Simulated assay, not measured.
Amino acid sequence: MRVKSLLALAACSASAVGILLTAPAAQAASLPCGLGSDGGSATATCWSGSSYTWRLVVDCNDVSNVKWPVTVKTLYSPWHKGDGTEALSCGGALRALAHLEAHS
């Protein structure tokens, strides 16, 4: 290839990468679910006949050093299809940080 062609290809690739990096992140689907945590435990409840398969995921964090919390373990509930409630507890002095994983 000629030098001009290589430079044009490199510029085009750089532009494409710039577009990918500056594009807004895709919005997560809104699930008809409630999610909450209280200290060392977390709960999730999904309703309205949701067609999603979901599970509760809880990171159990040691927050004894507020500046540097450390995830000690991660707990996973079984997968649920549609409506349901799930609760997980970290135990000890660990703080629960919960989120949902889902797929259709």
Rank of each mutant, 00 (worst) to 15 (best):
P24T: 02
N65G: 04
H80A: 13
H103A: 06
T45M: 13
A42G: 12
E101W: 15
V17W: 03
G92L: 07
L94M: 06
A44W: 15
L31E: 03
C90P: 15
E86H: 01
V58E: 07
H103R: 15
R95D: 12
L20Y: 08
V66N: 13
N61F: 10
R55F: 14
G84L: 00
G39W: 00
V63L: 12
L31T: 00
T71V: 07
S89W: 04
K73H: 09
L35N: 03
M1E: 05
T45F: 12
S64C: 06
T43S: 07
Y52Q: 09
D62R: 04
Y76C: 04
W47F: 12
L75E: 07
S77Q: 03
S89P: 00
T53C: 09
L56N: 03
L6G: 14
P32I: 00
G82K: 15
A29V: 06
L31P: 00
S104F: 11
A23F: 01
S41K: 11
C12Q: 09
V70H: 04
T43G: 08
G18S: 10
S30L: 08
G39S: 03
A96Q: 13
T22K: 10
L94T: 00
V58S: 12
A93I: 03
A87K: 01
K4G: 10
D83E: 02
A29M: 09
P32S: 06
G36R: 08
L9C: 03
T53P: 11
K73R: 08
Y76I: 05
A26G: 04
S30N: 10
H103I: 02
V72G: 08
L100M: 04
T74A: 04
L88V: 02
N65P: 05
T85D: 00
S89D: 06
A96S: 07
Y52A: 14
D62T: 01
R2C: 15
L56Q: 00
A96W: 15
R55Y: 12
S104L: 15
P32L: 01
C46H: 05
R2Y: 13
L6D: 05
A23V: 00
L9N: 00
A25R: 02
Y76T: 01
A11D: 02
A25V: 07
